[in-house]
Amino acid sequence: MATQRIVGAQSEGPVEEAVSLSLRPQRLADYVGQPRLIEKLTIALDAVRARREPMDHVLLHGPPGLGKTTLATIIAHEMGANLVTTSGPALTRPTDLVGTLTRLGEGDVLFIDEIHRLPVIVEEYIYPAMEDYKIDFTLDQGMHAKAITLPIKPFTLIGATTRAGLLSGPMRSRFGIVHSLEFYDETDLLKILTRSADLMGMTARGGTSMTDGLQTMARRSRGTPRIANRLLRRVRDFAQVRSDGRVDPDVVEGALQLEGVDKLGLDELDRKYLRVIGTVYEGGPVGLEAIAATLSEDAATLEELVEPFLLQIGFLARTRRGRALTARGAQHIGVTLAQQPDENLFNG
């Protein structure tokens, strides 16, 4: 079971998704961030609307929480089409895919999350659907086998993945628009938080502005809108109980301290991870399995949920001999390294 963390970018499940739905923009004009991608999509949507054709298939890849599902919703809304949502793990058999595709109306948008987890046999069935709007499948086996071609209505497939490297070449080549989502800067996160706070009806304490508090949240959101909105909801709850629902910088600081989120957006698991390397293993290098055993955590959890951000901010180095603290990482937790990790050991 994955560790639930307020600063974890993964979705916490249907309840969070339902709450987030009310905060998602419905138009490209309201979307904040990812300017290159938004320009691409604006041009593509204007062109296909003029020709009255389905849009090219779109592949969005990048870390979780950056807005892939939101963009799929916006594209469907801009095209005036229905959005059908599923995921790679849910399509376990070709019949699952056939059932989904045959129910699509003309111009509908099919969104497949975690598309890299499509089984190979299902992936083979989706190729002719993407290229020629048809499904080729076989009934029965052996001498009674019979090939059937089933036409389907033109549609747009939007695939989302956090592991683009696991997609096969044939699958990737069938997308007309492929784009990697980038982490957001503080300015864009502040705009997102300001909009969300307004939609949630949050107000500032008399004589103060919420901008400073929202800026604090933006700075600690690890470049991820999902985390920013999650922090905002926790601050709203804290403000409701401790300050009659009104927000100021002290309220924000109190709420984030209660959640264990420090000035850089690290939580207690991040800090424990760094302290284990810095104190138990004297700064490293040390293998991931050893760190996981010391923390009583799953190694995959640490690799997927903890390490990416620590690598991004330069607190952690991956070397050929294992993980090692950088000077910045050691300074943050107040540890003096006996020696710096040899840069020649870095594997990137």
Results as ranks from 00 to 15, higher is better:
H61S: 11
S87D: 14
A47E: 06
E123C: 10
L83A: 08
P63K: 10
I126Q: 03
G107P: 03
A129H: 02
A72L: 07
H61K: 00
G88Y: 03
V84H: 13
L104M: 04
S87F: 01
Y125L: 14
A129Q: 05
Y133P: 00
L66Y: 02
H61D: 13
E78S: 14
D132C: 01
Y125A: 14
A47N: 07
G65W: 02
E106R: 10
I115M: 09
L59C: 04
G105R: 08
I135M: 04
A129F: 00
L118E: 09
R93E: 08
I75T: 08
L71R: 07
T92I: 13
V122A: 07
V48M: 03
M130N: 04
E123R: 14
A81V: 10
V58A: 01
H57Q: 03
E78F: 13
E106S: 10
A76N: 12
D56R: 10
D108G: 02
L66Q: 07
T100H: 04
K68V: 10
P64E: 09
V122L: 06
G65K: 08
E131Q: 11
M55Q: 00
L104P: 01
T138A: 12
H57C: 04
T85D: 03
E106M: 06
R93S: 07
R49T: 08
V109T: 09
K68T: 11
Y125V: 14
E124Y: 03
V58E: 03
T92D: 14
L45V: 12
H77C: 12
P119K: 13
A90T: 15
G65C: 09
H116E: 15
S87I: 11
L139E: 12
F137T: 13
K134Q: 13
M79V: 08
D132K: 06
V120M: 13
D56S: 10
A76Q: 12
L101P: 02
